[in-house]
Nucleic acid binder design. Structure first.
Lengths: 256, 256
DNA sequence: CGACGATTTGAAATCAGTCAAGAGCAGTGG
DNA sequence: CCACTGCTCTTGACTGATTTCAAATCGTCG
């Protein structure tokens, strides 16, 4: 892409470009952000509730998730993340982390100092918009999860989550929606959809018996996408995958 | 505050100042944003799923809420809003609304064109940060709601919501946390916490019988704050009410 | 092989939902 | 002023989805 910049951060640029037009200089500047790459094991914490991190972490490989622990001790997973996702951009402003970020599988993250993020956002309006956009889409996914956990039955919830993962992995270039990696245990899955592991198991069996999906060790094959999307009440607009361009024209114009 | 600017938008400035230091010029510029004030009835829609609004709405008086309708027809309320909240700032970038915004009570909103928002954000870094911050706190509240509906039992969920409302109204200068307006029907309450109206009623009776709250027509009196907060597993850090100042120092510095 | 974690299955218990009806309350109109 | 209407709240009895508890099976890895 850019001449001499480090291409390690490329997945972030690709992700941001889903939504925000970035010119070559924007991309170069993003790729040139200072960073330290760390290799993390499955289960390792990236940031935790109450912490005041100084960096934000771009996920380069592997899977991660965010979660909170309720007073009862129960865990609720808030979001799942894959290559190209910035795991804690919100902390750049909020400063005190209000939840945990943890690796789901082994993987690598690039740690970028908040300072550098702030400077770049101040210097480049389109980059600032791209960061904001990223957090807004995050928020949109949270809203859909509230609906999922609040108003859908067990079978629907799980099917919905499987659809979301499928589509997001496709967009991230990690395979297609009909066959993808699903590295979560059923216990983790249950914490993402607000159910018990036992019941998640029953519903997965159920979806399998109905010929909608096929499971092998740590991956999912969707046998009938339309049927699964229907069962899962899945309507992907909330992912805002088609928002690019027009959406941010105003801001770009205002930049001049 | 500012010399000749219209003070109608003052509640927004107050809210943004919770998090972001804004100087006099910033405040004046915000207050000078072009806007149209509309008086809305209870139940009236402000924005709707699939819409492409051109304005965002600042709530000047009354209460509003955001919600989505699941495929089953069930409604899930996503957030509640009071004076000073911007109801749909996210749409400034996302453009296609992914949920509905509706008045809970009668009230007034100031409609501000997105263009003006974008121009102001482009011109004033601190204002841009304030807007971003506002949407990030929004996101933090969504995360807590996921936990609320996903991992807390009925009684706890409701107590938690009552605590959140109490604190937010206090911060917005609408009374104190021990006695505040609660203009929701039990049906609306049930859609906010993912339960049925019948069960919400039972739990409210239950909280009342335990001497935690007292209800009168459309308001709540908290008889024992600490006990209610404990029952509600309420830990207010997620509201980020103490984040001001240090949090955004970097960005302000970067602005120079 | 043995051990450990993850998955699967069954049976019983429970929290919340459903259905239904009555009571309270506010607004409307005669 | 009162009857009527409609909406919200309250309560009871029953149902059902999901949880809980417990145990068996499977798979992987040292």
């Amino acid at each position: 892409m850019s001449r001499d910049a480090d291409p390690i951060l490329q997945p972030m640029v690709n992700k941001l470009r889903l939504w925000q037009d970035l010119d070559g200089d924007d991309a170069s500047a993003l790729l040139a952000l200072p960073h330290v790459v760390r290799t993390l094991k499955a289960g390792q914490l990236v940031a935790w509730d109450g912490d005041k991190p100084q960096h934000c972490c771009l996920l380069l490989s592997g899977f991660a998730f965010r979660h909170k622990i309720a007073g009862s001790g129960a865990r609720q997973i808030l979001s799942l993340h894959l290559r190209g996702d910035v795991l804690d951009l919100h902390n750049a402003l909020l400063r005190i982390a209000d939840h945990n970020v943890q690796m789901l599988t082994a993987g690598e993250v690039a740690m970028i100092p908040f300072e550098a993020i702030h400077e770049l956002a101040a210097a480049r309006l389109r980059v600032a918009a791209a960061f904001w956009y990223e957090t807004l889409v995050d928020g949109s996914i949270f809203r859909e999860w509230i609906v999922n956990v609040g108003r859908r039955d067990a079978r629907t919830r799980i099917a919905h989550l499987l659809c979301e993962l499928a589509l997001r992995q496709e967009v991230a270039g990690l395979g297609d929606r009909l066959s993808y990696e699903m590295p979560m245990t059923q216990e983790q899955l249950s914490d993402a959809v607000g159910l018990t592991p036992v019941h998640v198991n029953r519903m997965l069996m159920n979806l399998g018996n109905d010929g909608l999906i096929h499971r092998s060790l740590r991956s999912i094959t969707v046998m009938d996408w339309d049927a699964l999307a229907k069962v899962g009440d899945f309507e992907p607009r909330y992912l805002h995958l088609d928002g690019r361009g027009a959406a941010t024209a105003d801001l770009a114009r205002a930049a001049e």
